[in-house]
Amino acid sequence: MNGYGDDDLLTIGAFAARARLSPKALRLYDRLGLLAPAYVDEASGYRYYRTEQTERARLVALLRQLDMPLALIGELVTLAELDGTAAAARLAAYWADVEARIAGQRTLAGYLRGRLSGRSSEMEELYGTFVVETVDVPERVVLTETRHTLADELPAWIGASLGRLETGARECGGVTAAPFVVYHSEVSMESDGPAESCVPVADETAARAWAKAHGRTRETAVRVEPARRLAYTRITKAQVAHPQIIAAFEAVERWLAGQGIEPVGPCREVYFADWDAAGPDDAVCDIAFPIGS
């Protein structure tokens, strides 16, 4: 049998019993590329396994119970055969991401329960009272990067894109005002915007040259942001997370409705503080809507 003695191989049934799995599960793992048989008889199609594959089979089964993506399971079980410590660290990183997502979903579920039941006082206690004010901002030249992105990729893209634009701004006379992100359409798990990161710069000519040089791989551009009046509420670093930030957007929308005011442009987040240096309770961002003068 393909260089193996009969004593070295187990039928799929015998191996399934040893691994405490079903033959159906083993066929699935083979189809998914997670655990291939040691040998397949060309004439009969029968699958045979080695005893040493038992640990991998059991590990695959356990990892699937964590709802781990198949590609990551394949990566992790292969890594486990080379370096168990590294595999354990990779699993820990995956599970930390899962717990962060679950914590966010738990908070969102609490927000939705309060919203559906109309318990506004409990919502304010949970998220704090959002104070809405207005401010006039002058016309500005902005270096921009635009991307269609879903909500799960948005935070990483905002940080990376603003970093790239701020680097470019240093070649364009420097940053002249707080960076901001404009949402030209909804960004959620079903809608991909687009979103536009913007960094105000001093030198329009230099900015256009920089954008032309760097716009081949990203949607980088320069435009003039007109003078605007913004209705905004200020939030902390902790409140930038979902669903607190949703509540902040809705607070400004309620204020506008109460004043009989319609927005005249897309909503935005204005990041006026050093994100890395800020603590959870430090104000870092304004949630804003452009309104008429």
Score class of each variant (00 low, 15 high):
Tyr39Leu: 08
Cys172Asn: 06
Tyr94Glu: 04
Met189Leu: 15
Leu28Val: 11
Glu139Asp: 07
Gln259Ala: 11
Thr107Trp: 00
His148Gly: 03
Cys198Pro: 00
Thr54Leu: 01
Ala277Ser: 12
Gly118Pro: 01
Gly159Leu: 08
Phe272Cys: 06
Ala36Met: 12
Asp136Arg: 08
Thr149Cys: 15
His242Lys: 04
Ala25Val: 14
Tyr48Arg: 06
Met1Phe: 08
Thr176Tyr: 09
Asp152Thr: 14
Ile291Arg: 05
Val201Pro: 00
Ala57Gly: 02
Asp281Phe: 05
Leu143Lys: 03
Tyr49Asn: 09
Met189Asn: 14
Gly174Phe: 11
Thr149Tyr: 06
Asp67Cys: 12
Glu186Cys: 04
Asp136Ile: 07
Trp210Ile: 11
Leu116Tyr: 11
Thr233Ile: 13
Leu256Asp: 00
Val132Leu: 01
Pro155Gly: 07
Ala57Arg: 03
Ala211Cys: 03
Asp276Lys: 12
Tyr94Leu: 11
Ala43His: 14
Ser293Lys: 06
Arg58Met: 15
Ser293Asn: 05
Gly128Cys: 13
Thr129Phe: 02
Ala206Pro: 01
Asp282Lys: 01
Thr51Leu: 11
Ser117Ile: 05
Asp152Gln: 11
Asp136Leu: 04
Ala209Pro: 00
Tyr46Arg: 11
Thr107Met: 09
Leu256Trp: 08
Ala221Gly: 14
Ala251Lys: 05
Tyr232Trp: 10
Ala278Lys: 00
Leu32Ser: 03
Asp281Val: 09
Asp41Ala: 05
Arg254Asp: 09
Gly3Val: 13
Leu35Tyr: 06
Tyr29Thr: 13
Leu72Gln: 15
Leu72Trp: 08
Pro243Gly: 09
Ser120Tyr: 05
Val175Asp: 01
Thr217Trp: 08
Ala251Leu: 01
Val252Arg: 00
Asp41His: 05
Asp30Ile: 13
Ala257Asn: 04
Gly260Arg: 03
Met68Glu: 07
Ala202Tyr: 00
Leu154Gly: 04
Gly258Leu: 07
Gly13His: 10
Phe180His: 07
Leu21Val: 15
Glu186Arg: 10
Ser120Thr: 12
Glu52Pro: 01
Gln244Thr: 14
Trp255Asn: 00
Ala151Leu: 14
Ala251Pro: 00
Thr146Leu: 04
Arg58Phe: 01
Thr205Val: 13
Leu35Phe: 08
Ser121Asn: 06
Ala221Thr: 14
Leu91Asn: 03
Glu186Asn: 08
Gly45Phe: 10
Asp41Gly: 02
Val137Thr: 13
Asp8Arg: 14
Arg31Glu: 10
Gln239Thr: 11
Arg223Asn: 08
Thr236Phe: 00
Leu162Glu: 00
Thr85Asp: 06
Val224Gly: 02
Ala109Pro: 01
Phe15Val: 14
Ile158Phe: 06
Gly215Met: 13
Ala211Lys: 07
Thr149Ile: 15
Arg27Trp: 10
Ala14Met: 04
Leu126Ile: 10
Gly118Arg: 05
Ile235Arg: 01
Glu122Pro: 00
Thr54Val: 15
Arg31Lys: 07
Ala88Asn: 07
Ile12Gln: 03
Ala92Phe: 08
Arg101Pro: 01
Gly104Gln: 15
Asp152Lys: 10
Glu145Pro: 01
Gly110Thr: 09
Pro37Ser: 11
